[in-house]
Nucleic acid binder design. Structure first.
Length: 415
RNA sequence: GGAGGGAUGACCGAGAGGCCGAAGGUGCUCGCCUGCUAAGCGAGUAGGGGGCUAAUACCUCCUCGAGGGUUCAAAUCCCUCUCCCUCCGCCA
């Protein structure tokens, strides 16, 4: 949720929102409604104040004066009721619009949409396409089963099989160990959450269409463990000296992938269900930029450690999503397609989700909302896709050095 | 699934229609005292929104798990929900 007060007083804040392609009329409308609501609130509070004052007098009043006072209080109450209803209506309208307004983009976020991200750096050599693409290669090694998974569950479902499962476990373990060393607390959180939690985490109402409902709409399957992790300090005031607080969520993720029909239909590049290790950080506002860089650095170490060539992209304002003020994508070279594809990303939400979560920092200058940040440490399925293309050798899969001890084998030959 | 009990400030815990944003204690902060430490003594100590401000101050509203209701007046009475505990059943 945005900061309405700042929206009306801070031009830069407003510009950051407009750069997310929000209609200026929507902003004007919400500001106008908010002005009305504040005025109405003043009227309500004045009346309520009077009404309370008289009510208090009744307790200590002489018996013969009570009825007169009661009548007076009753009359004020009736007047109050009408104005209160008007206020509630206004507040509901303000809120309905406000929750749809995205977090403003930072100044150093480039303008534009999907194709306008700015490449900040490119690391590693880009090899030619391998003999087999990831999907075909995985099949020859018995790593992925799609036929029966699709029959059982539908398109975009697959089973990971055999040694690929051991690779997944090795990957998760390797990444988690690195995060623990960097001060992250590992967490296996709930993957089903309530609607209110989705709202507080900033996913509803904007991304509702991407989320699965279960239990008759009572619960929702998370698309990322960021959702439950964000609630870890819901309603709390954190001492500034304890920040940043870093958590590594390990969970299965569920995404409907609405609107992606026909895209990435081979293999497990884009599926409805995958496992992921996610970084989540609560940071002091003045430190959140540094924390953002820190999270990207960790992502780069992981990708470099796996020997994958990548580039870092500063995502353009129109492609940021509602909650992010700034986002880096790490795109890895996918040889079979001859282009870079997104493997991980890393966002600074600033106070956008903290406002609804009620998570604050208590420091020398009083309390203020924390900043929250998140980043992908390892999206397992998609990481395997890249490994399958970069680690082919004469039909065999060569296990990356860093995973060998954890996997328990160095190579996998075709069946 | 059935039957009960409960949720109060950083924490423990009283309060059972008005004098309650809330006793008392612990903790914390400041001061006094004090070879040092401990103890003792005194004072202070909830959060959030809105208004006004350069910012304080100040005014005001809201908050006793959440949301509604009754009443002139609700921590206190009623309803719904969430969570915790005990007992029974069931499953592992």
């Amino acid at each position: 949720m945005i900061d309405l007060r700042r929206l009306r007083t801070d031009d830069a804040y407003r510009r950051g929102i407009e750069r997310k392609r929000v209609d200026a009329n929507v902003i004007d409308e919400v500001l106008a409604l908010d002005a009305d609501a504040r005025e109405k609130r003043q009227a309500v509070e004045d009346l309520r104040s009077q009404q309370k004052a008289i009510s208090k007098e009744i307790g200590g009043a002489a018996p013969d004066q009570r009825d007169a006072k009661k009548a007076e209080a009753s009359e004020l109450k009736d007047r109050l009721k009408g104005v209160e209803d008007e206020l509630t209506t206004l507040e509901d309208r303000v809120r309905a619009i406000a929750v749809t307004i995205p977090n403003p983009a930072d100044d150093d976020v480039p303008d534009g949409g999907e194709d306008d991200g700015v490449v900040l750096r490119t690391v590693g050599e880009t090899p030619a396409a391998p003999a087999l693409d990831h999907a075909a290669f995985a099949e020859t090694l018995g790593f992925v089963e799609t036929e029966h998974a699709v029959e059982a569950s539908g398109s975009r479902f697959a089973s990971l099989m055999g040694r690929a499962v051991l690779l997944e476990l090795a990957l998760v373990r390797w990444v988690t160990d690195r995060l623990v060393a960097a001060g992250f607390t590992p967490v296996v959180p709930p993957v089903m959450v309530r609607e209110a939690t989705m709202e507080e985490a900033g996913f509803f109402p904007t991304d509702r269409s991407q989320v699965y409902e279960v239990d008759g709409g009572e619960l929702f399957l998370v698309g990322t463990s960021e959702v439950p992790l964000s609630t870890l300090h819901r309603g709390e005031r954190l001492d500034a000296s304890t920040l940043p607080r870093r958590y590594a969520g390990i969970s299965t993720c569920f995404r409907r992938e609405a609107g992606t029909y026909g895209k990435d239909t081979t293999g497990i590049f884009r599926v409805h269900q995958f496992d992921k290790v996610e970084m989540f950080s609560f940071a002091e506002p003045t430190q959140s930029d540094a924390e953002h860089e820190q999270l990207v650095a960790i992502e780069e170490e992981i990708i470099s450690g796996l020997g994958l060539p990548y580039r870092v992209v500063n995502i353009a304002s129109g492609d940021l999503g509602a909650a992010a003020a700034k986002k880096y994508d790490l795109e890895v070279w996918l040889p079979s397609e001859g282009r870079y594809r997104e493997l991980t990303s890393c966002s600074n939400y600033r106070d956008y989700s903290a406002r609804r979560l009620g998570t604050r920092v208590k420091g020398d200058g009083g309390t203020e909302l924390v900043h929250t940040l998140n980043g992908t440490a390892c999206a397992v399925g998609r990481t395997l896709v890249f490994l399958f293309e970069h680690y082919q050798e004469n039909g065999a899969f060569i296990v990356p050095d860093v995973l060998r001890d954890l996997a328990g084998f160095d190579r996998v030959d075709p069946k």
